[in-house]
Simulated scan of single mutants.
Amino acid sequence: MENFWTEVLQLAETTTKRVGSQLIADFGKLQATKKEDGSLVTKADRWADEEITQAITATFKDHGVLGEETSHIFPANDWCWIIDPIDGTTNFTRGVPIWGISLGLLYRGTPVFGYVYLPLLNHSYYGYWLENSGLIGPVGAYLNGEPIHTSTDAPSKSHLFNLCARSIDVLKQPFPCKIRMIGVASYNILLVAVGAALGGVEATPKIWDIAAVWVILQAAGGAFIALDKTEIFPLTVGQNYGKNSFPCLVVSREELVPVFKPLVEFLANSN
């Protein structure tokens, strides 16, 4: 199976680099329109989703694909990729250089590999999380090929915690860390994985926002907490995930869950 994991990483790397090059050319130049759920989309999102889907199905003919801009139905395939072609479309259209391409590979409904590429930062994050999958393969989380790990620090006013736009009510109470708002769900969580922040919260992320980073965060030593107390994975075959949100807390280590969870668990009702 070693060759399989090499192919998976090569596909993710070459496809996101190729697609990212075109997206850089479109960066800050396209007008966005609103979808039914209120999120933004551009022709670049749709083009990138199609390009990534075609690359996956050409390489792995027995793999399914669930994409933000295409099908939201989780297929019956043992292996399925979940695609977010541009995570951070608002940043992308407004000329803010923090946005990324996110790919998560699931085995029987649970993510086992995640890859996120931020083209303008030239940062490639990826990781493997094979626990309880029955699979054998690589371990760990990486940034541009170098191992990464979450922070072991204790919270303080010199440490960071990331919010999303829908979680600012957190600030109505005293908070143990400085706050940052990234505007990109995957990067919010990746900053915890790489040790830059101690935690983060997303009030209404979709499955394509979290499939890849769920893997990378845990492979880096962090903890991913579903705030509505419902296990996210494995996904259910045949279910439409287009409207489902998954409020979540991420922290650099399990010991910090009781520190931060009481401050953000009201977001479980954000759906």
Rank of each mutant, 00 (worst) to 15 (best):
Q218K: 07
F92Q: 10
E68Q: 07
T230F: 00
T42P: 04
P97K: 14
G67L: 03
I210S: 10
F92W: 05
D84I: 09
L103N: 04
C248S: 10
G145D: 13
F74Q: 08
Q239W: 03
N144M: 06
I179N: 00
G238F: 07
S151F: 02
A203P: 08
P138R: 07
I98S: 15
V139W: 01
N77F: 07
K157D: 09
D84W: 11
G195F: 00
I82G: 01
V251L: 07
L235P: 09
I189L: 11
Q54Y: 08
Q239F: 06
T14R: 15
Y107M: 04
N162I: 02
K229S: 10
V8A: 06
G67K: 00
L163F: 07
W79Q: 01
V192T: 12
G95V: 08
F74E: 01
A48T: 02
I210V: 13
E255S: 15
L23K: 05
I82R: 07
T204V: 11
F224L: 11
E2Y: 06
F224I: 08
M1I: 06
G127Y: 00
P205I: 08
N269Q: 14
Y115W: 15
C248E: 10
Y128T: 10
R253M: 00
K243G: 02
I52H: 03
T33M: 11
P262N: 02
E255F: 01
E255I: 01
L191R: 15
L256P: 00
T57H: 10
F74C: 00
P85C: 03
G134Q: 04
G200F: 03
T59S: 15
R108D: 01
G64N: 10
E2N: 13
I210N: 05
H149N: 13
A55Y: 03
V201S: 00
Q10S: 14
T152F: 09
I210W: 10
N122C: 01
R166D: 08
T204K: 02
A211R: 09
F92S: 12
V65P: 03
Y126F: 10
S186R: 12
I148R: 00
D84G: 11
L135P: 00
L256C: 00
L160F: 12
G64S: 09
I136K: 14
G95N: 08
K229F: 02
W79V: 02
A226C: 10
A226K: 04
L249F: 04
T33D: 14
A141F: 05
D87A: 06
